[in-house]
Every structure is written in C-alpha cells, then in structure tokens.
Design a protein around this nucleic acid. Structure first.
Lengths: 209, 209
DNA sequence: TTAGATTCGATACTCGGCGTATTGGATTCT
DNA sequence: AGAATCCAATACGCCGAGTATCGAATCTAA
C-alpha cells in the first residue's frame, strides 16, 4: 500500500536498461515477506516486531525500513503477496451449493494458521486505515466480485429474487462467519456454513411472499 | 477481569469493620476508569497510554498499576463499568419490529464515540483472551439473553419456526452489522438494519418449505 | 580499469511507553 | 502514639520503533 516506489531504473525485465548501483536483492525482499507472515501467524500484529522479522529473514533492520515505511505497510504487503489461491467459487448449478462450499473453504482458512494472520490484520486495521483498506482491496473485493457472478447465475436460474440486494445478501452470509471468528462466542464449523446458507438463502428466494 | 483482589479488610459497606490503613480512594478509581474510556474513544486501544490515563485522571501512574496489572485489564474493567443502559428489546407484538428497533439502536451506538471503544476492545481482544472474554460476558451475553426471550415470543406467536436455531438466527442478524462495523466496506445505516431483518427473518418463518 | 551510484548488513543512537522501585507524606485503624 | 495502608512524584531499566552512519558489495557507464 504505502510501499516506497520501486527505485528508478529497476524497471522490470521487459526493459533491458538498468540504473547504476547495486540492484535490490529479490531474495531479501521475499525472505522479509515470508518472515513477516510467519511471525504474524505466531505473534499477531501487536506481538510481531520488525527486529524479529529482520532477524528471521537474516537481513539488516535497515533493509526493512528502506522499503517499507512502517509495520502496517509491511504487513499489508506481506498479506497481499500471500494472495490465497484457493477460495474460488465453484459452479455446480445451485447457488446454495456454490455458496456453501466456498463458505466452508473460508472457514477452513480461518481455522488454520492463516486465520491468525487475518485476525491480526483486522485488529491492526482498527487503528490503521491503510491496513483495513488493504484488506478490502486485496482480499474482500476480489472474492466479492466472484460472488456477484455466482449470485447472478442463481438469479438467472430463478433461485433468487431478481431485485435482491447482492451486498446485503453477501453480508448476511459472511458477516456471521466473521463475527464468530472474531468474537469466538460459538463454534465455527463447516456445518455452521451449511445451516447459515440454508437460512439466509431461504429468505432470498422468489415468491417468498 | 484480571483485576487484583480488593484489599483485605475493605469488605464493602455491609461489614462495619475495616482494616487499618488509608482506604482506597473511590474518587481516584472512578477518575481512572472515566479517563480510560475517554482516551480509548479518541486514541483506540493501541494509542491509549497508561501515562496519559493517569495524567488526565490527575492520579499517579503508580496508583493505576497498584490496582490493574496491565492495560488490557484496565480497559476491560472500564468497559464493564460503562455498561450501556440503552439497548433493551422492546415488545411490540412483532419479532420483526422488536429486532429491527434494537438493531437500529446498536448501529447508533457503533456510529457514536462509544463505537470507537467497542472496536478498540475487539481489536485488542484478538491478542488478549481475557479482553475478548470480558466483551462477551459484559456485553454480548446479557443482550443475547434478552434476544432469546424476544425470539421465544415470536415462536409462540407463530412468526418463527418452532425448531429455529436461535444462535444461528441471532448471528445472522448481528454478524452483518459487526462485519460492516469492523471492515467498513459499506455504510452502516438504520435502513440496513431494516432490510437485513426482513431478509433473514423471511428465511425463519414457518411453512417455508 | 576506474568512477559513480546504489544496496547491503551491522551497529549505534534517540525516543517513548511499559512496568517496577523508592520515597515522603496523607489517612485511618487500634 | 504507632502501625498499616494508600497516595503522588520521581527515577529507573527494558524493549521496540524508527533514524543515522559506516564500510563492503554490486551494478552501469566511460
């Protein structure tokens, strides 16, 4: 997000020219991002320290601060670099099945070590607008765009009302998952995804006068 | 939560006896809790400092640490002492109206300065089990118990299925509010409460074969 | 080969907040 | 009076954020 611009001259490989000077170490960059994710998973946003990241990446603390202005920017970039490749929406011919399966995948991630990273970002984001904005841009919106398509298919098949508010519907499906994830007042299980899906989609059918 | 035990001898007013020594200053205690809430509202959990709390309460830093072992315990106690007196459930004869009105009240609080306190606690709670447990015990469960009664009335009136899972239903109603509150990806308006209520409760009616 | 530009890791530094220790004085008991 | 406990003030050690500086390494251009 707030990462410093790539140094002048390092214009990527499509341009043969390069500026003078020692080039940025790609190895160091990747090691820093990897260490950030690891420490974020074990210590959370508040517990993670830049010094520990540098130590684990076998890199000078200076090198971290040369490229990222502060902890939040580093975390946002690390999270973005880890773009979770799973979490795609299937197309089974049934909205209920499509959504339910994807929600099960999300719950699985929330319950894994990656969940710790997400909770660290959401927590840190309450005190850092850039961080929560990075979460939305890199995680929420890309998946939501896919979800819109899934819902549109459901509408065209007559499984959902034509005039349904897609954002309202998606918040109703995912909000409860985020709530249980963050407040931890009840179990977050695959079965919960199914029952949640059944309840909410029942209210979104056509002719449900 | 993890507050130190009240000093031996300060047994409350039901017992006339008191231990020797200067009694704890009730005025200082209240000033500390009040300052904590104020600073929490303006600076968040991470930005709030104990020194600032002591300064604003015109109290020595030592006095804070004498009674609360750390920042999280202080914040949890301050939040508990502020038990929000509004947020009761009406009884209008319609589940939809009862829930919608209460959800509007919650949204109003989330959008006020108190919302900042709640988000600070939920954020800090991701790194502190005691803090999130305090939130559940002092805020979530008391209101949820009232909500159960509201739902039971709806069941007996035939507005809801007899076998409805109350926790699932309540999470479906409140989860989206918490999600929008924390992720801030969409407006959190009273109108949202109404439409959310309509969608979810439609899926909870009887005979919705 | 040399000069200039830039990155690297290492180290030392300042700053601020957390939490502890100490001290002198105030308050309330026996 | 004397003991016990609280109070505010102050000083302190510790740790991590972020800055400054250094010599060595790596690249381009001439």
């Amino acid at each position: 997000m707030r990462q410093k611009p790539w140094p002048v001259g390092h214009r990527g490989k499509q341009d043969g020219k390069r500026a003078p000077g020692r080039p940025r170490s790609e190895q160091a960059r990747q090691a820093i991002l990897r260490s950030t994710l690891e420490l974020l998973g074990t210590s959370g946003f508040a517990g993670m320290t830049i010094e520990a990241v540098a130590m684990r990446a076998r890199v000078g603390k200076t090198t971290v601060y040369r490229w990222w202005p502060n902890k939040a920017a580093l975390v946002a970039d690390a999270f973005a670099s880890d773009t979770i490749r799973q979490l795609h929406f299937p197309d089974t011919g049934s909205v209920r099945t499509d959504m339910s399966r994807q929600m099960r995948q999300l719950i699985k991630i929330f319950r894994s070590s990656r969940g710790r990273i997400v909770s660290a970002i959401l927590a840190g984001g309450q005190n850092d607008k850039d961080l929560i904005a990075a979460f939305r841009a890199r995680f929420l919106w890309p998946r939501r765009r896919e979800a819109y398509a899934t819902l549109r298919r459901g509408i065209s098949r007559g499984e959902l009302r034509r005039n349904i508010d897609k954002d309202l519907l998606l918040d109703s499906l995912y909000g409860p998952i985020y709530m249980r994830f963050l407040i931890q007042h009840a179990q977050l299980t695959p079965r919960f995804a199914d029952r949640l899906c059944a309840l909410v989609l029942a209210g979104a059918r056509p002719h449900s006068k």
